Amino acid sequence: MEISQLSEALQRDAVWVVFLNVLLQQIGLPVPAVPTLLLAGSLVVGSGQFASVLAAAIVASVLADWVWYLAGRAFGYRVLAGLCKLSINPASCVSQTESRFVRWGIGSLVFAKFIPGFSTVAPPIAGSLRMRQPGFLLAAATGAALWAGLALGAGWLLRNEVSAAIAALDRHSGSALVLLAAMIALWLGWKLWQKYRFRQLSAVPHITPLELIAAMEGDQPPLVLDLRGPSMIAETGPIAGATVAEHDLLLHAVGEWPKDQPIVTLCACPEDAGAIQAARQLLDAGYISVRPLKGGYEAWLAIALDKGMVTSAI
């Protein structure tokens, strides 16, 4: 849809256009909502529709968040793992965001909309951690009101500039499309570069689950750092002999562990991303022998079940 067509649609039925746009964006589709809110703010505030449009944005945002909350409540960490797998950058593991969510509490939901990436995973994390639904909905609504209200307000304050920008885009629609395509290409190139850089960083020696189990039974067992998120640990239980750790507090988790003694990092991330990141951080801090567990928690669980170390997968 061209800018002029969007502008005409907003003038005809701003409430439904904003509702559908925000709902699709918040449910996870790559549909930008802020430009629509800015445009709506520049067009509808003078007609007295501000409250209706703001309410539509809040309802759409909370509805999408509620769907993700229910998914997290029903399927737990599997929803979070699925979101992590969809990321074009495997190094952005959900468990890191989940730890921050737990640390910041319900207030994080109020500011989630302003933090790229965090806004997507915060609702299913809240569901998987069994946050009380009334508190979740109140925090989600408050955050949506701040996010949408600021965008609509900015559109009204900059209404002259927005109108001039729309006119310029209409006059130079071909150039605008080329610029948009270039910006998308740059964004995609940056994400692919991040993925390539992660591949380079992944070139660190791993340890297999069988090797880890043998080492844990030896005379000098390694320090095992379990980097899974709180919801997954609560759902599946801790790993015997492992120390629960967070990426942001990694050196604190290591404590006084000698730098020449072995350390193993494990997570439940695609391509062992979180475990590799943690291993790299500890190696850079001077620890000599740090290896991520190949295959992560799922690989360890499969071997543990086969050897009778655990009775069932929860």
Results as ranks from 00 to 15, higher is better:
245 A>K: 03
265 T>C: 10
235 E>S: 14
239 I>P: 05
233 I>S: 13
265 T>M: 07
263 I>H: 03
294 K>I: 04
287 Y>M: 04
230 P>D: 13
286 G>Q: 07
263 I>A: 02
284 D>L: 14
236 T>A: 15
293 L>K: 02
249 L>V: 04
261 Q>S: 08
288 I>R: 15
284 D>C: 10
239 I>Y: 05
278 A>E: 05
293 L>Y: 04
276 I>Y: 01
249 L>W: 06
273 A>Q: 10
237 G>A: 09
230 P>W: 15
262 P>F: 04
271 E>Q: 15
291 R>K: 14
255 G>F: 00
251 L>V: 00
266 L>N: 05
287 Y>I: 03
258 P>K: 05
252 H>D: 00
252 H>N: 00
289 S>T: 08
282 L>N: 02
271 E>N: 13
283 L>E: 12
234 A>N: 15
252 H>Q: 04
292 P>H: 07
235 E>T: 12
283 L>Y: 08
234 A>Q: 15
273 A>G: 11
288 I>L: 13
254 V>C: 01
235 E>P: 10
243 T>I: 10
281 Q>M: 13
290 V>R: 01
238 P>N: 08
262 P>K: 07
271 E>R: 15
264 V>G: 01
294 K>T: 10
276 I>L: 06
287 Y>L: 05
290 V>T: 06
229 G>C: 13
239 I>E: 03
281 Q>L: 14
266 L>D: 04
250 L>K: 02
230 P>S: 14
272 D>A: 10
236 T>V: 14
240 A>L: 09
242 A>M: 08
261 Q>C: 02
240 A>C: 09
264 V>D: 00
236 T>M: 13
237 G>E: 05
